[in-house]
Each structure stands twice: as structure tokens, then as C-alpha cells.
Amino acid sequence: MNAVTLNNLSKIYPDGKKAVDSVTISLEPGEVFGFLGPNGAGKTTTVKLLNGMLSPTDGSCSVFGIEPCKSPEKTHAISGVVTEHAQMYDTLTGLENLIFYGTIFGLSPAESKKRAESLLAQLELSEARDKKLGAYSTGMRQRLSLARALIHNPRLLFLDEPTSGLDPESAQNVHLLIRGLAQEKGITVFLCTHQLRYAQEICTRYGLMSEGRLIASGTLEELRGRIGAGMRVRIRTCPAGTASGILEENIASEEEIPQLVRRLTENGKSIYEVSTQAPSLEDIYFALTAAPETSQKNS
């Protein structure tokens, strides 16, 4: 069974704004799906649709076979959600907050406490556990939200910009945690993010949204194929330290490298270094979002 299925999903807000426009995606269990796109692309709206907070205008979606618009409680029981607007109670301490959410997710108070303590330790919040949430910094709140989303051992995580506001070190820790959860526990992760560098490290597949439409999706390799350039080769024809004499070229496949090198040596150049670099997720993102017309023609 698919972990997440979106089938021609569309959402038009009451004010007429078409935020999600016939999006079709399906995710296998255990995938870490990076949902990317510029501001206003419709990522958060999609997450809300998948949690039943909004009901689709057209099309459908399901989470492990359950339709969130029909039985939201059931999808909530198996998913954990972190979004910017899902805050906790300022008047309670970190630990009290987690215990409260544990209890409403059906854990016994003792279980909640145990689970909360281990999550607090995992997210490096043990020292702040008895501080009121009001005294937490943005990054600490964000990490506590992640702990809250994990309290009931969900099979699926919806993370809407979980690392916005985190310092680089915490952001890295959170990303490693997410990857660990997917690899060790087989949790499916639906990750909306603007941090492409981290996304490239932890996601197994990507979907790129723009103005409500899914303009590209697939693994990094597939996306690289989509933008044409297979890889970028960099050839240095001068000793290290001298700047002139670096050649960079886009090539379709590795097979072109020997040819390129031969051509250069025949022209009397000395080769000091040849390196290849596949386009990063960031390169792909810019290539695809810059020219949405051409990419739509391709699809």
C-alpha cells in the first residue's frame, strides 16, 4: 500500500486562489520525500489537505489508504505533523507539553513521560525540559515541535519547514534525526523545505511545485535527466594556484570525457586535473523554476 497518494488533487481557496492544481504523487513507505518550491507554491496547502485540515476542491488524497477528508482522526493517529502554526502551550513546561500531547494521542501518562524524556534527550532539550515553553528560543520550540510530532511513534511524518529558525548545527542534527527515522524505523517523511543542500542529503525523492502545479518529480538522477545536463566536467590545464586555464563544460555522459581530454592534449594543453560534478539539487531547482514553460512542455 502507498504511504501517501495524491490523485489529481486540487484546492481552490474560498477567495478563488487556486493553491494546488491537479497534483498527482505517490509515495512508498520509508521514502523521504522532499517537497520543494518557492513561497506560495502550495506546499503547506498540500500538507493541510493530507491532514484533513482542508478538504480538496477536486481529486483526492489518502494516507496509508485512509482518506483524511473522510476520517481525519484515523490519519492523525498514524501521522505526526510539524508546521509553523502548530504551536504548544507557553504556560506549560517542555515536558508537560509533551506529556499532554502524548496523552491525547492515546498514550498512558507513564508511557508519555518515558517517551517524552527520551525524545527530549534525542533533541538535546533535556536541560530545558522543566522550563516553561514561553522561555524557549525559536529553535528550541521548533525542536520541541518535532518531539511532539514523534511522541506517538507515527508511521508518517509531515514536516513543513522543520528547520526554519534553527542554527546550522541543530539543523544538521534534525536532518540526521529525520534520516535516521526513515532508515531505521521505516518512517515515511513528507518534508517541505527551502534548505536544498540538506534536502539533497536526506531525501530519496523530490517533488517540485510552482504556482500550485507539480512541475517535476523523481529521484535526483531523474531530475538531472530532466534538465538535460547529465553532469558538469571541470578540467584544469594549468598548475595549481594559477587561475587561468580552467575549463568547465556540461556533458551528457561520462563517455564524452576521454574525447574531451584527447582534444585538449592534441591542442597542446597539459591536463593537471579532471573532475566531474553532477548538478546539485540547487542547480536543478533553479533550472526548473526559472523556466517553468519549457519544463512543462517536457513533461
Binding site: 502554526h85 502548530a86 504551536q87
Partner: peptide
Amino acid sequence: EKHTLETLLYAPLS
């Protein structure tokens, strides 16, 4: 107002 409602609504309660 305190943005805690959304969190509460994510609970497996109707």
C-alpha cells in the same frame, strides 16, 4: 490566538 488550536486538531480526536 496562541496558535495551539491547529496542534490540537492534529490529535486523533474528532
